[in-house]
Design a protein around this nucleic acid. Structure first.
Length: 482
RNA sequence: CGGGGCGUAGCGCAGCCUGGUAGCGCACCUGGUUCGGGACCAGGGGGUCGGAGGUUCAAAUCCUCUCGCCCCGACCA
């Protein structure tokens, strides 16, 4: 097996694929466009899942499970929705050796089947809000796929809520967007823009779509999570009505929101380097690895085992450190150098090296993955210091990503400059935009750049549209995106 | 669907032009020596060359068809 990862500077795209394969996050499956998520990648997903799931539950949501198959007739009930999704649906037409009476769609998203149930379950304002979420796989027959970023089948979470008022639904939509943003920043160490999607980029069937938008190391944008205010569109299509306090029948106001295994792709492209994965400590499946440099009988292995035991039993200094995520690498027959490289490839945030020299001197070597620094530190009191070292790494990764995003966010005022800068240096080009779909579309056709979002915190500023010159009230970030 | 590339050992590749029955590196197994940034020596296992058909005394190699995958574009989380 080739151990060399294509350097980022040579071919960013190749680097990404090499890294995913070699760090054993995923592998290509026998089915085109599909991937196998390997244990290291799945552990990452489990950590993402666990953290988000707790956040959802704290805000009152419950998990449920709706079926994989959706009757074709259900999908067709909401006009915009079917238009958006029909082309990329996988359809089952045979079962039990017979042609099915009605084809079954493999869910590309579950609004339709969920609202068909909501119409049975919701009768009264007392049934609201209905706050459900599910962690499932979905299938979208994409033309071009890319490990984690866009696969035919992917794992995600989809929240579906129904409310008595428009304001409440909007509040929920924004609340979940903020949860995604908080998760991205606090756990993934990935700064994001919170914003509203333009009409062209809106979810099929939504009134408003909000998203969090990240910037990868190559300056390209990545939509990392979406939250939709569905208004009463699906309620009307699926006849989801309730009686309000005045005994009148009303359609519910609903929302849906989701993040997917794409987040793993985002994590990789945000932080990793030519040596391999760089994972934020809070999400890293293994947070600390101890590598003994030993010969049998020199006592190093025992000392390393003691250290691991001590780390595992020491009181975590904060919520970021978990004792089960410490590993002792006592494999024989592999040189220390080999192990160092392997753990770096796999993105372990802290590596502790301990050899005969350290044993004598009462010290160890602590190597931090995100900055590739090594320092010699006293053995005494080490275990207690590790949680804060992890926390520092977490913080400095976020800082570094913030700095990167800021350094590649530039105001641009003329379309000439825009066309010059969109490929190199790229990044987010903040431009005035009149708000018309025509300008947005022609910029996209001519430069492949899209409006990532209309940032919620965009300051008011008078200007003229970069494309047509009409009046504009604020700048929006344009970028090429994954 | 358009453009490009590739299918030979688990992985990466050579061999193909000029047909003669398969090779290299890594990985793997055994034994030994090593071990502070991808160790070394010795021995060993593993492939009907993507599939089908054809030409030929003989096909990984030549011809025809076919299947699959990867990369770049249009679609998208």
């Amino acid at each position: 097996m080739s151990k060399v990862i294509t350097p980022r500077a040579k071919d960013y795209s190749r680097w990404y694929t090499d890294l995913v394969i070699q760090a054993q996050l995923a592998d290509y499956a026998p089915v085109k466009g599909c991937m196998v998520i390997r244990p290291h990648g799945y552990a990452l997903w489990e950590n993402i899942q666990r953290t988000l799931d707790a956040m959802f539950k704290e805000t009152g949501h419950e998990n449920a499970y709706f079926p994989l198959f959706i009757p074709e007739s259900l999908l067709q009930k909401e006009a915009a929705h079917v238009k958006g999704f029909a082309p990329e649906c996988a359809v089952v037409t045979r079962g039990g050796g017979k042609e099915l009476e009605e084809p079954l769609i493999i869910r590309p998203t579950s609004e339709t089947i969920i609202y068909s149930m909501y119409s049975k379950w919701i009768r009264s304002w007392r049934d609201l809000p209905m706050l459900l979420n599910q962690w499932v796989n979905v299938v979208r027959w994409e033309m071009r796929t890319r490990l984690f970023l866009r696969t035919t089948e992917f794992l995600w979470q989809e929240g579906h809520t129904a409310h008595a008022t428009e304001a409440e639904a909007e509040e929920e939509t924004r609340r979940m967007l903020e949860i995604y943003a908080t998760f991205a920043e606090d756990h993934m160490a990935m700064p994001v823009l919170r914003g509203m999607k333009t009409e062209a980029e809106r979810f099929a069937g939504a009134v408003r779509t909000y998203s969090i938008e990240a910037m990868m190391q190559d300056g390209k944008g990545l939509q990392a999570g979406t939250s939709h205010n569905l208004g009463q569109n699906f309620a009307r299509a699926f006849d989801v009505k309730f009686q309000n306090k005045n005994s009148q029948l009303e359609y519910v106001w609903s929302t849906s929101w989701g993040v997917s295994t794409r987040l793993i792709g985002a994590l990789i492209m945000q932080h990793s380097d030519d040596q391999g994965l760089v994972l934020p400590p809070r999400l890293a499946p293994i947070q600390i690895v101890v590598v003994p440099i030993f010969k049998s009988g020199d006592g190093v292995l025992e000392a390393a085992a003691d250290l691991v035991k001590e780390i595992r039993t020491s009181t975590p200094g904060n919520g970021s450190f978990e004792r089960s995520r410490v590993r002792l690498d006592d494999r024989e027959g592999l040189s220390p150098g080999f192990k160092f490289n392997e753990w770096e490839l796999r993105g372990v945030p802290i590596r502790i090296e301990i050899g005969p020299r350290d044993l004598k001197a009462g010290q160890v070597v602590v190597a931090t993955r995100h900055d590739r620094q090594k320092q010699t530190v006293p053995r005494a009191g080490l275990a207690e210091r590790l949680p804060s070292l992890l926390e520092e790494a977490q913080k400095s990764m976020l800082e570094r990503a913030r700095t990167h995003m800021a350094s590649r966010s530039t105001p641009v005022d003329s379309y000439e400059d825009f066309k010059k800068q969109i490929d190199a240096p790229g990044g987010f080009l903040y431009c005035h935009w009149c708000g018309s779909g025509e300008c947005e579309a022609s910029v996209k056709t001519e430069t492949k750049a899209t409006i990532r979002c209309i940032p919620l915190d965009a300051p008011e500023e008078k200007g003229s549209c970069i494309r047509c010159g009409s009046a504009s009230d604020r700048r929006v970030p344009f970028a090429k995106a994954y």
